[in-house]
Design a binder for these strands. Sequence first.
RNA 1: GUGGAUGUAGCUCAGCUGGUAGAGCUCCGGAUUGUGGUUCCGGCGGCCGCGGGUUCAAGUCCCGUCAUCCACCCCA
Length: 418
Amino acid sequence: MQGPKGTYDVLPGDQLLRRKVIEQAEAIFGAAVYGRINTPAFEETELFVRGVGKSSDIVRKEMYTFEDKGGRSLTLKPEGTAPVVRAYVQHGMHKLPQPVKLWYYERMYRFERPQAGRFREHYQLGAEAIGSSEPALDAELIMMLSELYESLGVPEVELRLSSMGDSSCRPAYIEKLKGYLEGISGELCHDCQERTKLNPLRVFDCKNSACASLLADAPKLIDNLCDSCQEHFDAVRGFLDLFDRNYRIDGTLVRGFDYYTRTTFEYECARLGAQKGIGGGGRYDNLVEEVGGQPTPAAGFGTGLERIVLALESAGVTGQEMGVDVFFIILSSEAREAAALAMHRMRGVGIAADADYAGRSAKGQMKQANRLNARFAVIIGEDEIALGVATVKDMGTSGQEQVKMDVLLDYLQERVNS
RNA sequence: GUGGAUGUAGCUCAGCUGGUAGAGCUCCGGAUUGUGGUUCCGGCGGCCGCGGGUUCAAGUCCCGUCAUCCACCCCA
């Protein structure tokens, strides 16, 4: 037996770095006053079809959709934004002071072919700010991610920035692009000919070098923004400059969800393989309305925990080991009881304590204490029981002394906390 | 969905032109009695992914299948 394709277990040793990332994210998001939200693992399928978009690959072929016993069509969430927006609408959060700022740490599900940094179940950290069209908010979100990567030590991070325009400039641009593509249709690859009909913007994702050179001269959305979108974009750039955040404007950056408008951005880590996009997001001013709420501007991002961890590992970053303060060395059957009671009391005051349960020899138990990196070994055997003491050995200095059982707790508490 | 590589002890791997398996690490024990981190010695541990086929004989050749990895694609 083994876990399902594309899934993995997070063993104790794997938890260390992950916890570091999560704690750092919580601190940074909290400092920007984002409140945590959890949404269900599954939603009505319709939410994603309307939110993410019918023409997206995710909806077309990557969703874990199933029917429950009540005949409802449900889908394990493939992304985090639509569920958060649904919650915003459902709970009438438009009546709260705007914008409403939320962050999440959740599992996402996509039926994909697993690869380095790509899984069928993966974890994302994300944030959404709903209810404001202020460009400073776009910048705030971008900077939160930037700070997260930097504070953790993610190496070789690059930011790409673009704008998707809005309903007043994108449709006209798409027609213009379509016209251009149809003119060179014969020279494009098969996929791009398909994209021309379905979602022309996606041709810029084509890795085919022949297409790439042909598309170099194609009109870019970034050069065809309406005045208000251009103004918004310039304002966002102004804030990024203010923060000295380097970025590259990339008119070919097209995110895979249909809900994006105006600002879009993506962080990449050059250390990673093909799946080097570690986080991305943007503005989605039409999504709230799409999901059934009032027209409400919003922006957000998602970042992949696994990819951050992979990037950190490539840079040699590690997490904090679990600490053991005291390890009991039990050398006789009567000692077991005395040790159990002393250990119980220590744990009660927050001292991390453990003992041998494997029937190891005295030498083996010392070895285990060393392996756990215990600060003290408390040895209890026949001699100690007879005298009513415990032998406490400082594993760092190798010095040891006998301590009366009734003051053992105080003795260790004092030294552990120093 | 497409292409390539790989699948041998818990982990990392060796096993040449076919003759029923090895190393290192880990783990347990020992090197004079109840004491760690070095060293030495010993031990535990393997349906050689699974199913067929060829052969007197297959981990080693052939086919299939599953899984993993990498890339396409897509995205976190």
